[in-house]
Amino acid sequence: MSEDEKTLPAYSLPFLPGAIRELNSCGPLSEITPDWAWGGSTGKGVRVAVVDTGIEHDHPAVAGQVRGGVVIEWDEKAEDNLRIETDDPPQDVAGHGTACAGIIHSLAPEAELYSVRVLGTNMSGRAYQFAAGVDWAVENGMDVVNLSLSTSKKDYFAMFHSLTDDAYFKNIMLVSAASNFDEPSMPSLYSSVFSVASHAGKDPFTYYYNPSPPVEFGAPGIDLRVAWKDHGYATSTGNSFAAPHIAGIITLIRAKHPELTPFQIKSVLWACAANVHRKIAS
């Protein structure tokens, strides 16, 4: 393994400078350009949920675009063991969710952000809180959902599979970060989601497409200056920060082309990826 290969988290190996595959688009697909896909879009009217540690509603990095929030907690006395409460105004307990929301806002400044806080003190119920967060987003009219978290326990395979399929058929884009460990990473492994790992670049609009599983998209995730708790900022690293870059671009495309379905948007992303070259028909 070269020095380069050691500098990216697991699942990011296809996005090393030497490993990125050069691909070609052809026919009418070559006519899709970033300018057509998202040029002039601000994400206006698109609702984006960040399922995470919450969003700090008054952080300058989200500039007042947070429109609502919920907290989902494990409670054995509640129905289905889950308690869902409004988080008004939304708070972030750690900083991580605000970092993700800040990245989305930097790409899609007029998108409406929703804070879905699912990370809490209950360790055994956390996969269910996470699943309930995805479900909340699907049932509450969200268009794009950023999932910079994952679970590795195979017992939850079916539960997340049906949730992500449900979102797919309801035309909701789920953007899922791959785990930073080399382990099963749900829901990023499903084809119905946009799975994202990191590349070492910094340009927010430069992303790569990987045609081989398990991860389809590579976006910036290394040593990024991100928003953090208490109106602060920090430099951080992880696939968690790559996912919101793709979520931001999808938000722009969704705002400009609301009729597109998840697999059509995936095709648009593929056509505009930095490693996909257009062959213009003569």
């Binding site: 978290l149 590795s152 785990s179 992880g238």
Partner: peptide, 10 residues
């Protein structure tokens, strides 16, 4: 809470 590692500075 997340079961994920994090590197953070400054």
């Amino acid at each position: 809470m997340s079961g994920q590692p994090i590197a953070i500075s400054d």
